[in-house]
Amino acid sequence: MNKIINNLINHSSEKPKTLFLTDSLGAILTAFFLFVIMRLFNEYFGMPKTVLTYLSVIVIWFCIYSSACFLFLKGRWTPFIRLIGIANLVYCVLTVGLLIKHYPLLTIIGTTYFLIEIVIIC
């Protein structure tokens, strides 16, 4: 497992543009899942639909940011990578807060989804 993580880190540091592409694709997938799938099948997840909407809007902004960085940045990647990294960590903290706040409403599937999302982002 450590070897896989080290390979990912090495690859990302050698090709930072790929990191932005990966982040934008992950963000669009997350937004689709939050706004479409989880809203349609809300009884299986339990998170209020308004919360899902707000989270999907945040993630769409992350997607736009990462896509713009992927398409337009030619150098000086570090501050932009740092910014999206901090934004993703803040999103994770927000998600943990929402898990705690809405825990009585969440199903096991909903809780599991958000915990897995946090692990993947981190």
Rank of each mutant, 00 (worst) to 15 (best):
I64W: 09
K17L: 11
W77E: 12
T18D: 14
S56V: 04
I58K: 11
V57R: 04
C69Y: 12
E43K: 11
N42L: 01
P16M: 11
I37L: 09
V59H: 03
T30S: 13
K17C: 08
N42K: 05
R76H: 15
N42R: 02
P79R: 10
L73D: 13
T22E: 04
T18P: 00
F72E: 09
M38H: 05
V51A: 14
K17Q: 14
L40P: 03
L40V: 02
L52C: 05
G46N: 01
S24Q: 07
V59P: 01
H11N: 09
T78Q: 15
L25I: 14
Y65L: 12
S12Y: 11
L52M: 09
P48Y: 07
I28V: 13
M38W: 06
D23K: 07
T53A: 08
T22S: 09
G46L: 06
E14C: 10
V51P: 06
M47K: 04
L55M: 15
T18R: 14
T18V: 10
S12A: 15
L73M: 13
W61P: 00
P79L: 10
T22Y: 08
G46V: 01
L19Y: 13
S12F: 10
G46Q: 02
E14L: 14
D23L: 13
I58A: 12
A31L: 00
A68K: 12
S67R: 11
I60F: 03
V57Q: 00
K74L: 12
W77Q: 15
K49R: 14
I28W: 06
S67L: 15
K15M: 13
S56K: 07
F45V: 02
D23M: 11
F70I: 06
L19M: 14
A27Y: 00
T78P: 00
L71V: 11
C69S: 14
Y65P: 08
T30Q: 04
T50A: 05
T53Q: 07
E43A: 03
I64F: 14
S67M: 15
I60M: 11
I28D: 01
Y44S: 07
S12T: 13
I58V: 12
V57N: 01
L40S: 07
L19F: 14
Y44M: 04
I60N: 04
L73F: 13
M47E: 03
G46M: 04
K17P: 01
T30L: 11
Y54D: 06
F20D: 05
H11P: 02
I58N: 07
V36A: 06
F20W: 10
I64N: 08
E43W: 02
F20P: 09
F33H: 04
M38C: 03
Y44R: 07
C63H: 06
E14W: 08
E43R: 05
R82E: 09
F72H: 13
A27R: 05
K15G: 01
T50Y: 07
F45N: 02
K49A: 11
I60G: 03
F62E: 06
W61H: 10
I60L: 13
V59W: 03
W77M: 12
F70E: 04
F32E: 02
Y65W: 09
S66I: 00
F32R: 03
P79G: 08
F80A: 12
I58F: 14
I58G: 07
L71N: 13
R76T: 06
L29W: 08
M38A: 01
P79E: 10
A31K: 01
V59N: 03
V36Q: 00
